[in-house]
Amino acid sequence: MTSLTVRMGRAAAAPDPAVDLTGGWAPQTWLGAPAPGGLALPSATPTRAWMYSPRGVYFDDRYLVVADSGNHRVLAWHGLPDRDSQPADVVLGQPDDTTEGRAAGGRGPENGMNLPTGVLVHDGRLIVADAWHHRILVWHTVPETDWCPPDLVLGQPDFGAVEPNAGTECSAATFYWPFGVAIIGSVFWVADTGNRRVLGWRGGLPEPGRPADIVLGQPDSASREENRGESVGPASFRWPHAITGHEGLLLVADAGDHRVLGWTPPPDGDRPADRLLGQPDFHTAGEWPYGPQRGDRFRFPYAASMDAAGDSTRLAVADTANNRVLVWDGDIWTGDDAWDGRAADHVLAQPGFADNGENRWSAVTPDSLCWPYGIWLHGDRLAVADSGNNRVMIWRRT
């Protein structure tokens, strides 16, 4: 690996040591190549321990799964890694742990991937959004060996087909850049980013070829314009990218409109959102790229993750272009206006809510971020796919 300091600029203002803005969150485990003193560059030859622009992460008590997007593969650990740079146990999408390139280095899409992003394990099944192959791949069990082929493909007629919208017109059974997946209650949701919509299937994972029961964000299943071809509003998306929530709430990270939209309860058809974070109202899509940032604004929020346990609820949002993660604590998701517009309680990877520099305009450190694309909350741990630093960081709340 080559370490190179590529950015030196103005130093971020030193935080007040008397104010803890992290809420007790601190990095615990570093997965990927270390980069003391500079930017973490990807290895010329992949290994089980190094990554290139990871964009999705999932973990629970049994597995950690990473979409190693730039290497066009998925890495899986059986058990949560407990040491820095721990190699993955399983490599999927490539024939071995040193091959890279789209479609298994040119071997074909049947067992290869093209920029995988969203990853999820649900009821023992592994689900992968193979975004640039415009499909969802499903393994009935989390593989224990490398190069294990998927069992199901959604959005394409077979494992060899990779055209946008299955080479046909947009429909309720096709995808164009599906980036995010989630199962909330009994509904399987897909952020169909290139079609600027979210699709939902009642009853969980559907059989291949079954059209979605819910098309959210477009007037019908054949439409795919940004923001429904109109000005931004409460029933439209620009780049829906990640989905989270619980049985009473659906949240969608609409990265292109710099906001998170919410529905209470989750919709059973196309209808306007009734919850909003990141913008002053449903008809604003400002980026605010210059000047001090705030705890109630986003710049390209590509990921969101909610963890609800008992009476407590926590939400984390990857505020990607601001190089930080924002965290909201508490059961703030009920009531008519309990959380709309509320600033985050905590900020990770920046000294304060006003700051937004890549790696704080300095060198890579365990608690800095550069374009975090994916996050996952589970109890008092948070995994961050730190894409620009080619690593995954596992944080813990102490």
Results as ranks from 00 to 15, higher is better:
Ser3Met: 09
Ala14Glu: 02
Pro15Tyr: 04
Leu21Trp: 02
Gly24Cys: 05
Gly24Phe: 06
Trp30Ala: 13
Gly32Phe: 02
Gly37Ser: 03
Ser43Thr: 03
Val57Ile: 01
Val65Arg: 10
Arg73Glu: 00
Leu75Phe: 01
Asp82Thr: 04
Ser85Glu: 08
Gln86Lys: 15
Leu92Pro: 06
Gly93Glu: 01
Pro95Gln: 02
Ala103Asn: 11
Gly108Arg: 06
His133Tyr: 01
Ile136Gly: 13
Val142Glu: 02
Asp146Lys: 14
Pro149Met: 06
Leu154Glu: 02
Leu154Ala: 13
Gly160Lys: 12
Ala161Phe: 09
Glu163Trp: 10
Pro164His: 10
Asn165Arg: 15
Asn165Glu: 06
Ala172Tyr: 04
Ala173Cys: 09
Thr174Gly: 11
Pro178Tyr: 10
Ala182His: 06
Ile184Leu: 15
Val190Gly: 08
Asp192Gly: 15
Thr193Asn: 15
Gly194Leu: 05
Gly200His: 03
Trp201Arg: 13
Trp201Pro: 09
Arg202Trp: 05
Gly204Cys: 07
Pro208His: 07
Gly209Tyr: 05
Ile214Ala: 14
Gly217Gln: 07
Pro219Asn: 04
Ala222Thr: 07
Ala222Trp: 06
Arg224His: 05
Asn227Ile: 02
Glu230Ala: 10
Glu230Tyr: 00
Val232His: 12
Gly233Trp: 00
Ala235Ile: 05
Trp239Arg: 14
Ala242Asn: 15
Leu249Tyr: 02
Leu251Asp: 05
Ala253Leu: 05
Asp254His: 08
Ala255Ser: 12
Asp257Tyr: 04
His258Tyr: 01
Leu261Gln: 13
Thr264Leu: 10
Asp270Asn: 08
Arg275Lys: 14
Gly278Thr: 14
Arg294Ala: 11
Arg294Thr: 08
Asp296Asn: 13
Phe298Met: 05
Arg299His: 10
Ala304Ile: 14
Met306Pro: 06
Met306Phe: 12
Met306Glu: 14
Asp307Asn: 12
Ala308Met: 09
Ser312His: 07
Thr313Ile: 08
Arg324Asn: 08
Leu326His: 10
Asp331Phe: 14
Asp337Gly: 08
Ala338Leu: 11
Gly341Val: 00
Gly341Ser: 07
His346Leu: 04
Leu348Thr: 01
Pro351Val: 00
Glu358Lys: 15
Asn359Gln: 07
Val364Thr: 11
Leu369Asp: 02
Pro372Tyr: 03
Leu377Ile: 10
Asp380Pro: 09
Asn390Thr: 01
Thr398Ala: 12
